[in-house]
Write a protein that binds this DNA or RNA. Structure first.
Lengths: 103, 103
DNA sequence: AATACTAATCGTAATTTTACGATTTGAAAT
DNA sequence: ATTTCAAATCGTAAAATTACGATTAGTATT
């Protein structure tokens, strides 16, 4: 049907298609890790709604949750994050392999 | 509510959240321009469905249509395309300003 | 004026997304 | 054994997405 790359990219893009999910990921980028409760405080949404968005990010593979009862600690799934970045850079013709060039 | 950047990025990501829209954009990247009819031939979807997807890409600002009756020629909206690229690079910490460094 | 052609729009159905409150789960502390 | 707490799940409603066939619009051509 569609190309594998297109499907994977669309999948990641879908995960990024809601502002709260963008901001959750930004938070995890900065803080490296976060509890669900922290996000419920930060964002003006019900706890169940935040959980739902976290589940979607997890299903898309962008984050992973580590059980730490009664809390859950979330962080970025680095492998898939890197894949998403690579797919997007490829799509937009960004040569990210040179992005560390300092000259 | 949400940060302006997050909303814009989410908007662009949403446009990219369907495989056929990814492939339409790839086609436009390669061919630089395309008629609706070309895409109807390429993709296994009804003409009305393709039109719908083109409308979404147009609403998101990623493409623009030039009336050329009875045909319509679509191409990438370079300004918004650049913005989407910049927002994504910023989000993924890719320094795309250095992407042309050849050393 | 009538016809032909492309593409947009309309109407519709099925599915998915988004959001919420209420309930449940599962481990820790009392 | 109960209670407590965070987080997941359930049930549900409203809205949005995706897809299709049918119709309409608008320009060229005959």
């Amino acid at each position: 049907m569609y190309k594998k790359k297109s499907k994977r990219l669309a999948r990641y893009a879908k995960a990024l298609s809601h502002p709260v999910r963008i901001e959750i990921l930004k938070l995890l980028e900065n803080e490296s890790c976060c509890f669900t409760g922290d996000m419920v405080i930060v964002f003006p949404l019900a706890q169940s709604t935040i959980s739902q968005h976290l589940k979607e990010l997890k299903n898309a593979g962008l984050i992973q949750g580590e059980l730490n009862p009664p809390k859950t600690k979330y962080c970025i799934n680095q492998a898939n994050w890197a894949e998403a970045k690579a797919l997007l850079c490829d799509f937009f013709d960004v040569d990210f392999s040179k992005s560390t060039c300092s000259i």
